[in-house]
Design a protein around this nucleic acid. Structure first.
Lengths: 217, 217
DNA sequence: TGATAATTTGACCGGTTGGTAAACATTACA
DNA sequence: TGTAATGTTTACCAACCGGTCAAATTATCA
């Protein structure tokens, strides 16, 4: 036998798992930084510390690498939204969704940029995932939000655009990191910006910008 | 003479202006769709409807094209923020800033994606612009917002993160257009989504999500 | 008109791209 | 241990990349 993928019985060797792990880690690094077309197999091989043909022994094409990466990351990426609980307190749910998304932007910026690159360039490789699983999940959660608004638990608003707003504001800190740093300047670009962002966003989504009742001290 | 750039007396021929225009239009199309590394000169030439050497007669390198494009677009792109008026009514100013940014996302999505691609991939070509002119402009407007919060005109909040939030939520509709369409589905992906977004965002930034006083009819 | 400058093109170049072939090395296992 | 499957490498390829060059074409204007 020559090809490691699609082993008859099972994913046998431990060496396969290790190498595939290393490759996907390197692929994440490179794809997230340059997009699909901008990334090169040589670069990924270099980061993974192995030869290009060796890489192509585990993943037959550049696209196969990209696909494997997408498949692995997409599920994790949508976990916070799945945790959205219809039975919970709306404000608490929204607050913790924001916090979780912000934590992911902080801890997994490469994953965020991987998707951002992909979607930004027209999502040529993940169109099906967007129109299928993603849409279905969002539809489901949008219904939850709609129920909350109908029950008068939160202000009436378009649930889809609410979700878009949470996505964009949180992922902004991963996807546009260099711009955020540049604007905040050297002094304020420590990791504290995520806490500031969390404080701001939780307040924004819950209270808006209306004049606060307690005047600044 | 051989090189059209840096003509001694002035930008002489009208033919130069026309061709450079066509090239930059094509370059915008291609760079915004694939990023700098993902775009090819042949592709730009093809879209512009001229031969590659002819293209390189007007812009000597791929980078020169990209730079010319950035320079031309950046100013326009920051206009809405410049219009932010310290003397105006805070809520009105924020509302119209959101509306203007949303209009730009609708009418100039390629320009938005051009920058998004660039920033997403580490802003290798526009770092100076971010740390220089952009930061200074944001610093200035952040000061305006801070004055509003100190005067109690709007809720106390971090002005930088407020600006980030407006940027991200509005540009989301340009940069992540395919995702927005995919999630909204065919029925709702007409141009009406921008009006829905405007309604949602104006309300979000002004009132937040708190329980509305007037119950749904 | 004619000559001079501006514009356009086809042929081409060295380097890089994604991917392959086959020989070689290593592992797993009877 | 032997041997067959698995893993790795060297050398290589055709297509494409950004860019050059000299020749051909077109516009300008005295």
């Amino acid at each position: 036998m020559v090809l490691p993928r699609a082993a008859k019985t099972q994913r046998r060797t431990r060496i396969q798992e290790e190498k595939e792990e290393r490759i996907l880690e390197a692929a994440l690094e490179v794809f997230s930084a340059h997009g699909f077309r901008g990334a090169t197999v040589d670069q990924i091989a270099d980061v993974a510390g192995m030869s290009k043909p060796n890489l192509l022994y585990y993943f037959r094409t550049k696209e196969a690498m990209h696909r494997a990466l997408i498949d692995r990351v997409l599920d994790t990426w949508l976990d916070p939204l799945r945790a959205f609980d219809a039975e919970g307190n709306p404000v608490t749910e929204i607050r913790s969704y924001i916090r979780r998304k912000l934590e992911m932007a902080r801890d997994f910026p490469r994953e965020s940029r991987l998707f951002a690159n992909e979607v930004l360039q027209g999502a040529p490789h993940i169109e099906d995932e967007l129109k299928g699983p993603l849409k279905e999940l969002v539809d489901e959660k949008a219904e939850v939000i709609r129920a909350w608004t109908k029950a008068g638990k939160i202000a009436k608003c378009d649930p889809y655009h609410l979700i878009f707003a949470i996505w964009s504001t949180t992922q902004h800190y991963a996807d546009f990191d260099v711009q955020v740093r540049a604007v905040l300047g050297q002094g304020n670009s420590g990791e504290g910006r995520f806490e500031d962002a969390a404080r701001f966003l939780e307040r924004l989504f819950v209270d808006g910008l209306q004049v606060s009742e307690q005047p600044a001290s």
